[in-house]
C-alpha cells in the first residue's frame, strides 16, 4: 500500500509536469495551429532562468519571475520566426519548431554546461512532512499546489476574461474573430506566450524535483504529446487529464516493474486510440 501510494504520488507530480506542458501545447496547437516541438526547449529555459535568477531574487522570486521571462522569449520567437509561417502548410512550422528545439537545447548546453546543474530549493521544503509518508516532502506538495493553482488560473482566464473568450472563439473560427474587429496577430502572440508561460513554470518545478539538464525538455515533450492524444486533441481538460493519467500510471508501474515505466505510457495511448480514437474528451471528427 505504502509502495502504491509512493508510486502514485511520484506519478502525480510528473503527471502535473506533463499536464502543464500538454496544456501549453494544446493552446498553441488550437489557436496558432502549430505543433510546437520547441516547447521542451522553452521548458528547460524556464528552469535554467530560475537557476540563474535565484541567487539574486531568491527561490520564490525566481519561481514567480522566470515563467514570464520564458514567455517573453517565446513572444520573440513567435513574432520573429513563427508568424511568417501562419497560413502555410503546417509542415513548415513543424520543421521550424523542430529546429528551434535543437537550437534551444544546444543553447542551454553552451550557456549552462552539458552536465546539468542542481537547482537549490529552500531547505525547509526538503524535509518529509510525515514519518510514515516519507515521500511527502514540502517541495513535492508545493509542486502539486502550484501546478493545480496555475491550471485553475488558466481555466479561469479562458472562461471569464475577454482574452480567454477570444482564444476559445479563435480555436473554432479565427477568421470570424478577425472580422469582428479582434487583432488576431496580437491574439496569437499572447496565446503563444501563455503556452510558453506554462512550459516555463513546468521547467522550474521540474528543475527543483528532477534537477536541470539540457535534455530535460526533450525527455518530457514526448509524454506531453501522448497526454494530448490520450486526453483528446482540442480539449484542454482532456490534456490535463491525459497528463495526470499517464503520469500516475508511469509512477505506479515504476514501483512494480521499473523497466516498463516508459512503455506503459505508450500502451495507454495505443489502448485509447484503439477504443476511442478521438481521445477521452476529444472533439468528434478530428481524428475519426
Amino acid at each position: 500500500m505504502q509502495l502504491l501510494l509512493f508510486g502514485a504520488f511520484n506519478g502525480l507530480i510528473v503527471g502535473f509536469f506533463y499536464a502543464l506542458m500538454a496544456l501549453g501545447l494544446s493552446l498553441i496547437l488550437g489557436l496558432n495551429s502549430v505543433i510546437n516541438f520547441a516547447h521542451g526547449g522553452f521548458m528547460a529555459l524556464g528552469g535554467y532562468l530560475a537557476f540563474t535568477l535565484a541567487p539574486f531574487i531568491g527561490f520564490w522570486g525566481a519561481l514567480a519571475v522566470s515563467p514570464f521571462a520564458a514567455a517573453a522569449l517565446g513572444l520573440v520567437a513567435e513574432r520573429g520566426l513563427i508568424r511568417p509561417l501562419y497560413g502555410r502548410d503546417p509542415l513548415y512550422s513543424l520543421l521550424l519548431t523542430f529546429g528551434l528545439a535543437l537550437i534551444l537545447e544546444d543553447m542551454t548546453r553552451t550557456i549552462w554546461g552539458a552536465q546539468g546543474v542542481p537547482f537549490a530549493i529552500p531547505d525547509f521544503l526538503n524535509h518529509p512532512l510525515s514519518d510514515v509518508y516519507f515521500f511527502l516532502t514540502g517541495y513535492r506538495l508545493l509542486v502539486v499546489i502550484v501546478a493545480a493553482v496555475a491550471t485553475g488560473a488558466l481555466f479561469a482566464v479562458l472562461r471569464y476574461t475577454r482574452l480567454g473568450v477570444c482564444i476559445r472563439a479563435g480555436n473554432a473560427d479565427l477568421e470570424t474573430v478577425a472580422s469582428l474587429g479582434v487583432n488576431i496577430y496580437l491574439l496569437r502572440a499572447l496565446n503563444f506566450a501563455l503556452g510558453i508561460l506554462l512550459a516555463g513554470l513546468a521547467g522550474i518545478l521540474a528543475g527543483g524535483q528532477l534537477g536541470l539538464t539540457p535534455t530535460m525538455g526533450s525527455s518530457l515533450i514526448m509524454p506531453s504529446f501522448v497526454a494530448i492524444i490520450v486526453g483528446g486533441a482540442g480539449s484542454l481538460i482532456g490534456s490535463l487529464l491525459g497528463g495526470l493519467i499517464i503520469g500516475v500510471a508511469a509512477g505506479v508501474t515504476t514501483m512494480y516493474i521499473p523497466a516498463a515505466s516508459e512503455v506503459v505510457i505508450y500502451l495507454i495511448m495505443a489502448l485509447v486510440l484503439l477504443i476511442r480514437p478521438r481521445g477521452l474528451l476529444g472533439q468528434e471528427g478530428l481524428f475519426e
Binding site: R162, V165, C166, R168, A169, A172, D173, E175, T176, V177, S179, L180, G181, V182
Partner: peptide
C-alpha cells in the same frame, strides 16, 4: 465607425454561450 460583417451561414462560435459570442467584438 467600423464595418459589421455577418457571414453566410452565420459562423457562430457554437460551443460558446450567447453572451460569450457577444464578448468577442471589442
Amino acid at each position: 465607425g467600423g464595418v459589421g460583417y455577418v457571414p453566410e451561414g452565420r459562423h457562430m462560435f457554437r460551443h460558446l454561450t450567447v453572451e460569450e459570442n457577444l464578448r468577442v467584438p471589442p
